[in-house]
Amino acid sequence: MVHPRTLNETGYIHEGNRMTRRGTFALLLLPGLAFLIFGFLAPAMGILFAAPGTDASEIFIRLGEMLTDPYDLRIIGRTVGLGLIVTAVCLALGFPIAYILARSTSRWGGVLLALAIFPLLLSNVVRTFGWLVILGSNGALGQLLVHFGITETPPQMLYTPFAIVMGLTQLFLPLAIIACYSAVSQVDAGLDDAARGLGASRGRTFWDVVVPLSMPGVVVAATLVFAGSVTAYTTPYLLGGSRQRLLSTELYSYSSVTVDWASASATAIVMTILVVLVSTVAARIGRKGATA
């Protein structure tokens, strides 16, 4: 019996027309490449060099200003700061959830996993809108605080950094859970038992065995949450109001309210560098963790 693999390796079928096969496959790439080039790459390059009626030099001068001007620096700082807080909160809440779900043997584990993933399907506008109902001046949380005599009048919660942190945590917690879950499920539950058997406390087992072995997943989770937080628009727009300006809301108002292309381009560059830098560094750390 002649195995098809053998035919292939002897060149009976494929080797003879390998070049035409490659040519066919290369043709299959073309439509996708055209979409990427015209719908993404070329316009993205334009941000740097060809904003409408603007010289590249103006964009770079504005970029330099942005990195020295106190007003702009405050916005960059606020964006990064909120991103870091949201990342920390999402890891603090997401890792325990991932850990419990990954170690769960009950059928509720599947239901809880589905409940953690479902919000990802739901529109960000819909999810963020809930906080307007909860944090608004007639909202549930304010009423509750007054009812229990904690404050006399409902405190201002909407349009504060607190509101943005809550909104962004809600949006990105599912991403953190999924990334951590994938990592924790790959850590053999037998290792937990081994550590416990050797006398380690529950807490020590968690911190010295589970967390270090899940680090690659934690790094992925942190990257996704941070990148999402510093580029999110809907949440700061709805929950931050006009006083909590972030890079994303600035980018929008430069492009469609004040129509200042140099500033819009410079803001876009800052935002992109921030995300790419963090992703690259995180990928490095993740790879180091994997080989160590």
Binding site: P43, T231, Y252, M271, T272, V275
Partner: peptide
């Protein structure tokens, strides 16, 4: 990799 807001601007 590139923020969607930036792609939109582009």
């Amino acid at each position: 990799i590139i923020p969607e807001l930036v792609v939109g601007l582009a």
